Simulated scan of single mutants.
Amino acid sequence: MPVDPPPRALAGIGDEAATSVAGQIAAIQRLGWRHVELRSVDGTALADLTDAAFARVRTALRDAGLDVVCAASRIGNWARPVTAPFADDLHELDVLADRCGALGTRYVRIMSYPDGGLAPDDWRDRVLDRTARLAERAARRGVVLLHENCAGWAGADADRMRQLLDAADGLGLLFDTGNGVDHGYDAAELLPPLLPHVAHVHVKDAVGGPGQARYVLPGDGSARVADCLRLLLDSGYTGALSLEPHLATRPHDGVRAEDAEPFVRAGRRLEALLHELAGSVPA
């Protein structure tokens, strides 16, 4: 039966550290963490793994004692506009719902679709319709869709995210601390009205600007990671903090991790930030 992670579990998107499941597990274990988020293994998206390959992943995670906190889908992401076949989204959701059940997690990350060349009103209407239908299907399958503040119609706008939540019953939010640098907004300013709906968090940091982000260790960039974490913790957030540093893996550029060391350094920095934040709480 899918379960929620323990309060403020530290996790990491495994393919940010290594392509193989063995490498992903090793990186998480080096940090002493017990939670992982799955996106791809050996360069293949979680939903596209054969049944045999998925069974090997599940067994490896179980033998390592790692729990899965979320499955990152491609639904509505930067490569799948709202004009793409909806059947692709439905199929991926169905596969991931089964695999989430086997992995013991209930969260599936989605985005809200590039426009595919549609006029603004048509784009909005299709996004709201698709997301509502997907959320309903997910609920029937026992999983929860989480919309990330990244690519798509509602990726950078809190009002649009609230419209999406209103249209799609059961939808939650996944907040990424670092996406604002690349997408042109201040994450710490976007976050406050969304806090009651945030169910999962990605942690990354960056410098630069829209379309030219360069990723750095958490706390070293301009994404205001510490401010975002403080807002979340002060609000009573109890979900996982999932590391997605983009130091060795950048999916948009086809760059995949070959060295887990940057991921591990980013994990240590996240731990240090949390320690500093805990020390700043008045007695």
Rank of each mutant, 00 (worst) to 15 (best):
G116C: 05
V57S: 02
G104E: 11
A79Q: 09
D98V: 04
D121F: 05
G117N: 05
Q29N: 10
V69M: 07
R30T: 15
L103W: 10
P85I: 03
A9S: 12
A45L: 13
L31I: 15
A9N: 02
A17R: 00
A27Q: 04
T83P: 15
P85R: 10
D122H: 13
D115N: 14
H35C: 06
V82G: 09
G12P: 00
V21I: 15
R56I: 04
R56Y: 00
R39C: 04
R62D: 14
D48Y: 10
A47Y: 01
G23H: 03
H35K: 10
R80A: 09
E92P: 04
D129Y: 10
G101R: 11
V108L: 15
A45I: 03
T83S: 07
L61E: 03
L66F: 03
A64E: 09
A71Q: 14
W78Q: 10
R106L: 11
L93S: 07
D88G: 15
E37I: 07
P114F: 02
L93D: 04
P81M: 06
R124D: 06
Y107W: 14
E92Y: 08
L66I: 13
L31E: 11
A60F: 08
G116Q: 11
Y107P: 01
G23R: 00
L96R: 04
L128F: 02
D42M: 02
D121I: 08
D94I: 04
R62W: 04
G101L: 09
R80W: 11
F54M: 01
L38A: 06
V95D: 11
A11K: 03
L31M: 07
D42E: 13
L46F: 14
V127M: 00
A71V: 14
C70T: 12
G12S: 08
V108G: 06
T59D: 14
F54L: 01
A52E: 13
A64S: 06
F54P: 00
E92K: 06
M111A: 15
L103Y: 08
G14S: 05
S40Q: 15
T19H: 01
L10E: 12
A9P: 02
R109K: 11
D67M: 12
R74Q: 13
C100R: 12
V108W: 10
A18E: 03
L66Q: 03
L103M: 14
W123N: 08
G104A: 05
L38E: 00
R126H: 09
V69D: 06
Q24L: 06
L128W: 05
V41E: 01
R74L: 12
Y107H: 14
A47L: 08
D89K: 01
D115K: 01
T83K: 02
E16R: 03
G32N: 07
F54W: 14
F86Q: 05
V57D: 07
A52G: 12
G12E: 02
R56C: 06
A87T: 15
V36I: 15
T83L: 08
I28K: 07
V21F: 02
T44P: 11
V21G: 00
A9V: 04
I110A: 00
L61A: 03
